[in-house]
Design a protein around this nucleic acid. Structure first.
Length: 583
DNA sequence: GCCGTTTTCGGCCCGACTGTTTTCAGTCG
């Protein structure tokens, strides 16, 4: 429901923009769409409580529209717009270099309503003669259409971050580059990334040219989208767009703050600056008069660090993962930001696989690999019997494995503790894959959904509740079973699931594999607000995947998670006491 | 269409880059 309505509002925004409507009117639809997309609760539940207008960016008008859609499954206003403007024009606006004005121009002048028609017109040289168009613009549109067909939407963080880091490393090796950082949504650790923003600092802008030349000449550049002194853009062969910006070190703070975003965060930060008599842009803080106009001769303030910029505005420095205008600015004003979890807080990893099911390493090898990475304790959690595709363990094999785990635990001689658990399937009928008398012999029990993920909300919810309520189940693994970017989360009544997890003291996982990142940050935040415990685990199937923990930490930080709420930040004694207490 | 330390009307960010321009419009982030 939330996604549907968010998409409709997004489309309405595009259509209003195409019609040349007031910018602030269509932006309000877009902002509302973002709010809805990130909600950790179903709009129907919020609507039933009469709480829609309490949501940010939702006023009376949009609340009425949401209710209309919930009740009738349709939105009259949207239907009228669709009758007026072909929906396929929105696809044309998604072509890089084509915005609302161009789309409308092609529609008005040539009757073009689809990407295919636009491509044909460009190939027949019909666009070049239009007002404001030339042969270069026409070619750019053909390139843009090709790029569109290569793109598969947003890029997972797990792909974008390593790619960005590799580029940054090349630039950092240049003598002109004083420092550099990945900004944008990667720095904020969004699970998916639109394009990559990299910032590098130089002493003097005359150093920019060789840096940009190195950047656009990299071997994995498919084409150059733009090359200037302060900004250059390329498309990589894998379709990812990367922007590099060069800025003087003296303005690093404002630049990094600005290009980290989010847009919503920055809008509010700039408003705070204005309230204090300053106009903020990516370069400087400029004194303004009572009309908000920049005072020409007044000295401008520059900032070499983000910390000093936030401090100037009376704010605590805000960790990038929080910068979504979700309350972090208000908390920074009162210096009450949470003490977020860090990678160093993690002491154990409670979810991993071995050769007993679908992992690559033995129990002993996983223990060694985890020990080398500083882990104090791990739990071996192979798949259960019904997951045949992953070589799930029968009861007999599970019990045989326990002997091996106990032996390895003893062999490790206290360097690292090795506990025995399972990642048990929650079967399609809601039953659990092992009986209680087996579960009670295990140190730690994860229950996860792997099959029949397209059941309706009632069935999925019932399966999850059944697992949460079992006294032997300690943790629900990747609770929403999403896979980024291709598999949507299951439909489930998260209100009911959180309430049950709270009641039964069952922890919920943030799965650190960047394909999952599940729970997502907004749900993790809601969970800890309710006092539900979390665990952040790699779900490693081989040694290198133990290094994915940082993705889970970043996700948790986006969810305002503090270390005390995460059971694998506890020392081994406290963890052991907790699992013992859980029966 | 939303919102409120300028509060129920009047704001709501703006600079870089490109291509078409003889001074600017459109797009993007």
């Amino acid at each position: 429901m939330n996604r549907e309505i968010a998409q409709i509002f997004e489309n309405i925004a595009d259509m209003l923009q195409l019609k040349g409507e007031n910018i602030h009117r269509y932006l309000s639809y877009r902002r509302a769409a973002e709010t809805i997309r990130d909600l950790p609760r179903d709009l129907r539940a919020i609507s039933a409580e009469g709480g829609l207008t309490d949501l940010p960016n939702i006023g009376k008008t949009l609340a009425d529209k949401i209710n209309e859609y919930i009740e009738t499954g349709k939105l009259e206003f949207y239907e009228r717009l669709k009758a007026e403007i072909p929906e396929s024009l929105l696809d044309i606006m998604r072509i890089n270099g084509v915005g609302p004005k161009k789309a409308k121009l092609f529609w008005d002048e040539l009757g073009i309503t689809t990407v295919a028609e636009l491509q044909a017109a460009a190939e027949n040289n019909q666009l070049a003669g239009l007002k404001g168009m030339g042969s270069k613009s026409q070619q750019k549109i053909l390139d843009g259409i090709q790029a569109l067909s290569r793109q598969t939407g947003r890029t997972p963080l797990g792909k974008a971050l390593p790619a960005a880091q590799a580029i940054l490393d090349i630039l950092l090796a240049m003598p002109q580059v004083i420092k550099g950082e990945i900004a944008g949504s990667i720095r904020r650790a969004r699970p998916t990334i639109g394009d990559v923003d990299i910032l590098v600092a130089v002493q003097d802008m005359s150093d920019s040219a060789p840096i940009m030349q190195t950047f656009v000449s990299m071997e994995n550049v498919a084409r150059i989208l733009g090359q200037g002194e302060t900004k250059s853009s390329v498309e990589l062969v894998n379709g990812l767009q990367v922007d590099v910006r060069v800025l003087p070190l003296a303005r690093w703070g404002t630049g990094l703050q600005y290009f980290t975003g989010s847009q919503a965060h920055n809008v509010k930060i700039r408003q705070i600056a204005l309230n204090q008599g300053y106009s903020l842009n990516e370069h400087v803080l400029s004194p303004v008069d009572s009309n908000g106009d920049i005072i020409p001769d007044a000295p401008k303030l520059t900032f070499e660090t983000e910390e000093s910029l936030y401090e100037q505005l009376g704010l605590s420095w805000i960790p990038p993962e929080l910068r979504e205008d979700m309350g972090e600015i208000e908390a920074a004003q009162t210096h009450s930001l949470p003490h977020l979890i860090t990678l160093d807080d993690i002491q154990g990893d409670l979810h991993m696989h071995t050769t007993w099911s679908d992992g690559k390493l033995s129990v002993r090898e996983m223990a060694e690999a985890a020990y080398q990475r500083g882990c104090k304790y791990i739990v071996i959690t192979d798949h259960s019997r019904s997951l045949g595709i992953a070589n799930g363990l029968s009861i007999e094999r599970l019990l045989a494995q326990q002997e091996e785990v106990r032996r390895v635990d003893a062999e490790m001689n206290g360097k690292i503790r090795v506990f025995h658990g399972t990642e048990m399937d929650i079967n399609a009928d809601g039953g659990l894959d092992f009986p209680d008398e087996i579960l009670e012999q295990l140190d730690f029990v994860i229950a996860s959904l792997h099959v029949s993920l397209r059941q309706d909300e009632e069935q999925i919810t019932r399966r999850l509740l059944n697992a949460i309520q079992n006294p032997h189940v300690d943790l629900i693994g990747h609770p929403r079973a999403q896979q980024i970017p291709h598999r949507e989360p299951v439909k489930a009544d998260m209100d009911a699931i959180f309430a049950a997890a709270k009641q039964h003291n069952t922890a919920l996982e943030i799965n650190a594999n960047p394909i999952r990142l599940d729970l997502e940050a907004n749900y993790a935040r809601r969970a800890i607000e309710m006092g539900i415990l979390l665990a952040i685990n790699t779900d490693a199937h081989q040694a290198e995947q133990l290094d994915l923990m940082h993705y889970g930490i970043r996700t948790a930080r986006r969810g305002w998670v503090t270390p005390d709420m995460v059971i694998n930040t506890w020392d081994v004694a406290r963890f052991q006491a907790w699992i013992t207490d859980q029966t």
